[in-house]
Design a protein around this nucleic acid. Sequence first.
DNA 1: GGATTACGATACTGGTCGGTGCCGTATCGT
DNA 2: ACGATACGGCACCGACCAGTATCGTAATCC
Lengths: 203, 203
Amino acid sequence: MIAVTATRRDGSEPTPTLRGRPRSKELDTSILAATLELASEVGINGMSMDDVAQRAGVSKASIYRRWPSKELLVIDALRSAMGPLDTVDTGDVGADLRAILGDLVQRFSAKERMNDILPHLIEVSTHDAALRAELDAYTQLRRVPLRASLERGIKRGEIEPDADLDTMIDALLGPIIYRRLLTGATIDDAFIEALMALVVPGR
Amino acid sequence: MIAVTATRRDGSEPTPTLRGRPRSKELDTSILAATLELASEVGINGMSMDDVAQRAGVSKASIYRRWPSKELLVIDALRSAMGPLDTVDTGDVGADLRAILGDLVQRFSAKERMNDILPHLIEVSTHDAALRAELDAYTQLRRVPLRASLERGIKRGEIEPDADLDTMIDALLGPIIYRRLLTGATIDDAFIEALMALVVPGR
DNA sequence: GGATTACGATACTGGTCGGTGCCGTATCGT
DNA sequence: ACGATACGGCACCGACCAGTATCGTAATCC
């Protein structure tokens, strides 16, 4: 959370203000939710702060009371949508990958927001370092469980010890992202199976 | 070319105006070139028509004399950058793919404009049908030579006749686009070799 | 009750941008 | 020479937008 908080001269955390009317926690969540919705619908640049305020049922002042700029609001919204993924460890590489990639397929069909924001985030990242960092975080978030499963597979002897894990992950995630962003072709379990047959044959 | 030309009531092509000063062909090319440059540098939305005029060394009026809107100018500029690719037919699938993908790698390192525009084009395509069509054209343009080579490979018995060519192409281009747009990892010949080892083992 | 802060509503500022209009000048065909 | 069109330069319009300011009201603590 990057919400606005006063900072004392000595750098100590100020005791969160006790006097006066407290900030509504519901507004926090509704503002973040509205930001994610609009960002997925019309893009980060395409949405105005007035739009966000209206969608959240909130006045613009209430937004700027919490975040100093649109960019920082978007960053917080993205982070709120990037929860850590469930760790998967079935004891079998094939089952792991099927579970991880199958979950990704589910998220595509479920119209998960982060997925719809991706094309907009990629674009903004080309000229905004802070948002580029968020995109990198998301990218790594998706890679970590795959890498963990493949490393366990090496330990168990299911994967050759000198396998290039990065390339294997690229070969699994790359075609999925490619279909999502470029071709628009359907991404289903059959496609996942076809990819696995290429990358981890026999599993 | 979508340049502005009057259309007669009966729909016949008007004889290109003979009277008066003729339009400079150099301005056409410099405007298109400036559009591509700026689109790759600051994005399609990030560039203003004043920017294009200045970069092209041209007045804004000269742009609007040729194109009725920014969108149509961008479309023409994209088409001017999407020349047909050289057809590759070495008689061997492995050599074909290496040539085609190697050329793609060259274009990446050569800072080819179309490549730098890609993230911006993907974003705009989410809310602009006309530009979406241009992106689709580019996507197919990249797939065609790969498909042709693989089909020849089937005829020669180098590829199994029931191979899923679309998925194979996805598996080759997907990881490349993925690295370009998401991870930022280097895309070199070694990476191409690794992908080919997965998709067309032994070739 | 009084001080303090949050809230909605609204207006406003300053800047940007797509697109138009006008001017004086340049370049063509006749 | 003359009519017609292109050209650069520039001012301009209308819309949009991030961010600020103000005001009356509501909620909380002391």
